[in-house]
Amino acid sequence: MTDSSTSSSVGSNRVKRGLAEMLKGGVIMDVVNADQARIAEDAGAVAVMALERVPADIRSQGGVARMSDPDLIEGIQKAVSIPVMAKARIGHFVEAQILQALDVDYIDESEVLSPADYVNHIDKWNYTVPFVCGATNLGEALRRINEGAAMIRSKGEAGTGDVSEATKHIRKILGEIRALSAMAPDELYVAAKELQAPYDVVAEIAQTGKLPVVLFTAGGVATPADAAMMMQLGADGVFVGSGVFKSGDPAARAAAIVKATTFYDDPKVIAEASRGLGEAMVGINVSDLPAPHRLSERGW
């Protein structure tokens, strides 16, 4: 601590978590080039996620998916003034160093890319730039927060257009938080053990009834109704990956999802927003995906 009025600090926990606070109630859209980034910004995206291929293409084309080319990321940074996020592979701390050097606003340590380490995630405390990480349940979210994640997104099943996994994960995380809130103090020790998460943060959540960081949802959101449902379930905001730019009319669909996210509790507005959007992304039922192709099972 210092009492000097000249001292200032960057990269603090509050500043890192703070940017996510400002994104709440908004839609973060996957984009693969500067033109898409401009369309997203014009449609009211609160941030864009720069990546080389949207999850639907990663899924159909196969192969190893990695961090994007720095030229592509810089092109997107130049095209828009809203925050630009970019993905690093799970455990790939050098990709994360590169993204920080490129001055991206948030790093997504993402299961959508091929993991680089099947044991360890990135030690996210070592960076000034904040991280968002995926989670399918509360224990996973807390392990990521313990590693320094400043924002959590429920994983869903990216690149499918099937929202069922997103529903499952956000319900699971919020349900487990509600369960903690109902526990007696002496039950929290075992709860922490079962969640495989540090006791301190478990006790804090039991008391506050919420994660210490912002919780978005992701993976399979393709329509305004999907986005509004995630918000009604309790998400702070929504990531839309393939759902926008794999649809018939990306600009209209993007704007419609933004409207539905703000007015998530007003069916009239959502109905209006849902009209005449053309074709939604084709989609794959998650139940038709063989287990090895389920991205949400990456990360632990």
Binding site: S4, S8, R14, V15, G18, P83, T128, V129
Partner: peptide, 27 residues
């Protein structure tokens, strides 16, 4: 600039008197 330049600092705000205001700047 971008998020890396987001910061917190103690600010003197004469109208509010002591103590300094701890101010958080995000982009």
């Amino acid at each position: 600039g971008n998020q890396r330049e987001s910061f917190e600092v103690d600010l003197d705000v004469p109208e509010l008197g002591d103590p300094a205001v701890h101010a958080v700047f995000i982009r």
